[in-house]
Amino acid sequence: MLEIREVTKKYGRKHVLDRINYQISRGEVIGLIGENGAGKSTLLQILATLMSPTSGQVLLHQQPYRKHVKQIRKKIGYVPQDIALWEDLSVKDNMVFFEKLSWVNKTEQQLKRICTDMQLNQWEEKVKNLSGGMKRKLNLAISLIHEPELLLLDEPTVGIDLKSRVEINGYLKGLAKQKGTIIVYTSHDMNEIKELCDRTLIIGDDPFYHDILDR
């Protein structure tokens, strides 16, 4: 279970996040929405341990972030908004590279399996020759090598074709169901959020987002 308790983030005097409280159980998929600059990315980065809150705390399975950063990070899969891949390496080499650096040992077969599960089949192709959709899939696949219990995705499907998006979303749903992974997700696409997420957390107080969600 992921608990967010009274999390506040200030930049100087400006409150970006103001006393956020939220709880997410195993296997839940949560969508984060809000206008640009409302603090979605900030919250996601706090959850990803890349930033610490000004006050308040976050707990994963009752373990507070502040004290156990190292153990927590082993359980987190973070999918950055930018494509974080070695462009010159092949899909295979990217997977193998991050497997070598990760906490787990996997065979090449297991790594390939992660990709094929997402319909990413160009195993030997260099990343720079892949389409945008395939790059996104690989971007996600790498974050799954160490089988994280908490998966954080920062606009993972931005700018890709419909087919790839459906494939990615289908995969994520399966992941939450079968392995009980907690998934937190930011997106600007309302349809996607409605289709994929069990619950939605609105960041910021713009009434527009509350209305559109109710509709």
Binding site: R73, A84, S102, W103
Partner: peptide, 13 residues
């Protein structure tokens, strides 16, 4: 300067 650098946060080193 590459984005890939961020992934090292979740790695062994």
């Amino acid at each position: 300067s590459q984005h890939v650098r961020i992934r090292f946060q979740y790695m062994k080193v």
